[in-house]
Amino acid sequence: MLCSVFVEPSQDGWIVRGDFTESPLAFTTGARAEQAARELSHRLAEAGEPVVLDIRLRNGSRAGRFLFPPYGGAPAAAMALRA
């Protein structure tokens, strides 16, 4: 099943939310939020789940969208694809 992960601005900074948890993860900077979202996406892909990471700018426009195909622990296959 496809997992979705989002990086979005919030009132106090930035949040990472998605199918993986009920409450979002909060960060003070967008860079830290994006780094955490990428790490999470890699871990989910390593566990065999395909992941789409959607990153938003402060104004709400899309900064990037990436697909992390499942790779089941084969490090040579660990690569995000721009979607």
Rank of each mutant, 00 (worst) to 15 (best):
S23R: 10
A37C: 01
S4Q: 14
V51G: 06
T21P: 05
P9A: 07
L25S: 08
G18E: 00
N59M: 03
S4A: 12
R32K: 07
G60I: 03
E8K: 14
M79I: 13
T29I: 01
R43I: 07
V52L: 14
E8M: 10
G13K: 02
D12I: 09
P70W: 09
F6Q: 07
F20S: 01
Q11S: 15
E34M: 01
Y71R: 09
V52E: 14
R58I: 12
I15P: 00
E22P: 06
E22H: 10
S61V: 12
L40Y: 00
P24L: 04
P9R: 04
A77C: 08
P69W: 06
L25W: 07
A80K: 06
V51W: 06
I15A: 03
E8D: 11
M1Q: 15
G30E: 06
H42S: 09
R17T: 04
E22K: 12
L44P: 06
R38I: 02
P69K: 05
R62T: 13
A83K: 11
D54R: 15
A76P: 06
F27T: 01
E39Y: 03
M1I: 14
A36M: 03
D12K: 14
A47C: 11
F20V: 02
W14K: 00
P69Q: 06
R65I: 07
G30F: 02
D54I: 12
P24V: 05
F66N: 11
A63K: 13
S10W: 08
M79C: 14
F66H: 13
Q35W: 04
V51R: 06
A77T: 07
D12Y: 08
E8N: 11
P24E: 06
A83H: 10
F6M: 06
I15Q: 05
P24F: 03
A83D: 11
T21F: 13
G48K: 09
S61T: 13
A45W: 07
S4H: 13
A83I: 12
T28C: 03
A78E: 09
Q11E: 15
M79N: 11
Q11T: 14
T29W: 00
E46P: 10
A31P: 00
G64H: 09
